[in-house]
Design a protein around this nucleic acid. Structure first.
Lengths: 347, 347
DNA sequence: CTGTTAGCGCCTTCAC
DNA sequence: GTGAAGGCGCTAACAG
């Protein structure tokens, strides 16, 4: 590894001081245009590249942010990271990636690592297993810029970027109603998760607003799996008033619903409508393709970085806890396409 | 941001020198157990955390590696990154992630960024659009540890971790033959890509070894898309000798094949077998589920990091260019499951 | 076994 | 506008 040229090297060549070279390279206001020119030329000629380590150590700014996701294997988070990294790169920031594997200890270790690396800020999607939030409280106390995305904890009062689950569910339900389905039921997930609760409420609100009948019996408590989607169908069809459409809390449940309906020779979307949530990658490729609600993952990543950057630049302000709520987008595919195409000009 | 405690602080408290404190903290051999103990205790008490920036600057080792992938949105790469980050974390390394977006300029920018950050090594999956490899040659000249994964360029003679495409294709084809299909044809992809060429050759070799008939007419030149899978079916069924099974170069083509066959009311797998390559996430959820060849993505990530670490520790050795070739794994699902279950004890 | 000294490469006062 | 000097926090070389 041959020695890299430093500002001292180019200072010596030009009969200047490293200080002036530094200033020239950093576009310092009080530096003559001439020396700036010559320094820049020399730097190019000598293949000079700034040592970020030294610069960061001295200036206290690393232009690096830490990102914690549960797993890079999960599509959703890969997509968010895509947005984050893009935006970071555009703004001259570098990202350190860490996976919590839904494990609190790893999440804490990630934060230690980030702190040791002197990151300028941290982006986190909280691990599911995290119950002790002291590491986040600690960051807040240290005034380290921090933004949660997708999964957050409201009691911590930390800025966040999330999707509007209520609105997404409301629209999904309203969509089924507008497609002409009349008896719409809902497969929900673990009720202690805010996202699922919001989706349930969105469903209820839409049903109420459109004056459609529903009761507690119209809701099946699943566990976000293909299997529970199938079980939901069995349950619903055992009821006296049977549904003609199902809004599932997420796509895997919706997939299970579709699979059982197909087994029972019930035709989708003619006899029965289905819509999911999350826009998982398989939805587009199954048949009929699955209507769903997209969670704006890339946008979430971009907005998260932007919000973090704002906090990094303007400082952590205790008084304003900004929470960005993204608009979910309905993906209208075959599984809910009951009306004929010529009737659907408005879509 | 309250001041962090440094080794000087704890040295002062203990009446020692920062040098001794540093040694104690780094488990230096020539340090008394007593001072080591007391220093560690004090460090804990004072909430000391090492400043990696300073340490890296001084020691020349950053314990950071750079990772370039085409896009975090692509499942395959998310999965590889999962493996890389896991392994890195276990070994005390931190990863900086960069996406090339299949763009040569961004790839070069990523390498500059990594060099500026003084990474200890770099992991790359080359961008598709990269035609000028000088940035990699430069790394080699600078003796920066470098390992390619999945996509590499053999003429560069750089260590790599890839999947054995030939073997995967051979097995997929052999599997169809063993399932009783007799007239197996192949949908290939862009022929200039090594992976696709290898898969084509694996197909041919299996056909030859099993003495099955095939000709150039048995091969359809597609463009790795659902559409080209459909077109392939149309082409194959126009032939005099029609196929009863298709091995597609990757899953999207296989999906197109299945969709067209279904449109034509040809029953899979009873009348027609299909197998793809890549184990895309949708394959498990379509019906019938798609048999495919898994590319060992997580393993690829882990092995890539391990190989890079070895090079970092033992130095770049011009003479030995290690290339790790991973065994692909056949995922035997419904689309090729022709024989009855009771005949399949061996699977 | 521990202290002294020096400096990694950069930036930031403070002078002039 | 530029130079001199110092130091960010740490580790390495050399003493002793």
């Amino acid at each position: 590894m041959s020695k890299r040229t430093t500002i001292n090297d180019i200072a010596r060549e030009l009969g200047l001081t490293s200080a002036s070279v530094s200033r020239a390279l950093n576009d310092h206001p009080r530096i003559s245009v001439d020396t700036k020119k010559s320094v820049q030329a020399k730097a190019l000629e000598m293949n000079y590249r700034q040592n970020k380590l030294a610069s960061s150590l001295r200036s206290g700014k690393s232009h690096t942010i830490g990102v914690i996701i549960p797993s890079a294997q999960i599509n959703f988070f890969g997509s968010v990271v895509h947005g984050i990294q893009n935006m970071a790169s555009v703004n001259g920031y570098t990202i350190i990636l860490y996976q919590s594997e839904e494990n609190q200890a790893l999440e804490q270790k990630a934060i230690e690592t980030f702190l040791d690396a002197r990151v300028d800020g941290i982006l986190v999607s909280i691990s599911k297993e995290t119950t002790d939030y002291s590491h986040f409280v600690e960051l807040k106390k240290k005034k380290i810029p921090l933004v949660f995305f997708d999964r957050n904890n409201e009691s911590l009062k930390i800025p966040s970027v999330v999707i509007d689950d209520f609105k997404g569910a409301y629209r999904a339900t309203a969509h089924l109603i507008e497609m002409g389905y009349r008896n719409i039921m809902h497969v929900t997930g673990a009720p202690h998760l805010k996202a699922f609760k919001d989706r349930l409420n969105g469903y209820k609100a839409a049903m109420a607003d459109y004056k459609m009948p529903y009761s507690e019996a119209s809701i099946y408590n699943g566990n976000i799996s293909i299997e529970s989607g199938k079980e939901a169908v069995d349950y619903f069809l055992s009821l006296e008033t049977k549904p003609d459409a199902i809004f599932a809390v997420e796509d895997f449940s919706a997939l299970g619903v579709m699979q059982r309906l197909k087994e029972l020779k019930i035709i989708i979307p003619k006899e029965f409508g289905v819509i999911g949530f999350a826009n998982e990658s398989f939805g587009e490729y199954i048949s009929p393709s699955l209507s769903t609600v997209d969670q704006q993952t890339v946008e979430m990543g971009k907005k998260s970085f932007e919000l973090l950057l704002e906090i990094i630049e303007n400082g952590v302000d205790d008084t304003s806890e900004e929470n960005i709520i993204l608009e979910p987008v309905l993906y209208f595919r075959e599984s809910s396409r009951r009306v004929k195409l010529n009737q659907m000009a408005k879509y």
